[in-house]
Design a protein around this nucleic acid. Structure first.
Length: 123
DNA sequence: ACCATGACGTTTC
DNA sequence: CGAAACGCCATGG
């Protein structure tokens, strides 16, 4: 993400900074072996309809100072739609598998069982 | 400044 | 019940 904000973007900055940082913050709190969805995070942050931005935030999460477990965030169907954005396509699946999550055909089996709702469980 | 494009999700048809 | 439309909003051309 462009931390350096041009004068014009001040408007979107307000939301941008807060939103992105909070997304990272929440994502970091996802327990090992659990997963959540973009929409759930967006909902948790108050902007229910900004799931897309959560995805965008994840896209930029590689530039974040601290580590963000982006592989634990999938779409609402438990599909690993973001795997192409990792260095290695298999990395996402491999990491999930190593945490005990079953993944077949880029899809998480028993998604509900592993689902972690930020709102409910984050307090 | 306008248009297209997303790691999405809900609603409508 | 599947497909399409639409809302969202940062970014790049």
């Amino acid at each position: 993400m462009k931390r350096k904000l041009s004068n014009k973007l001040v408007d979107s900055t307000r939301l941008n900074n807060n939103f992105f940082e909070r997304v990272f913050e929440v994502a970091c709190k996802i327990p090992e072996g659990r997963v959540t969805s973009y929409g759930a995070i967006a909902k948790c942050l108050g902007s229910v309809r900004s799931a897309r931005m959560v995805g965008w935030a994840m896209n930029q999460s590689h530039f974040c100072k601290f580590y963000v477990p982006a592989h634990r965030v999938v779409n609402r169907n438990g599909l690993l739609t973001g795997k192409h954005h990792f260095e290695n396509e298999n990395q996402m699946q491999v990491q999930l598998l190593s945490e005990g999550i079953e993944v077949i055909d880029d899809k998480i089996i028993n998604f509900n069982k592993y689902f972690w709702d930020p709102c409910k469980e984050l307090i």
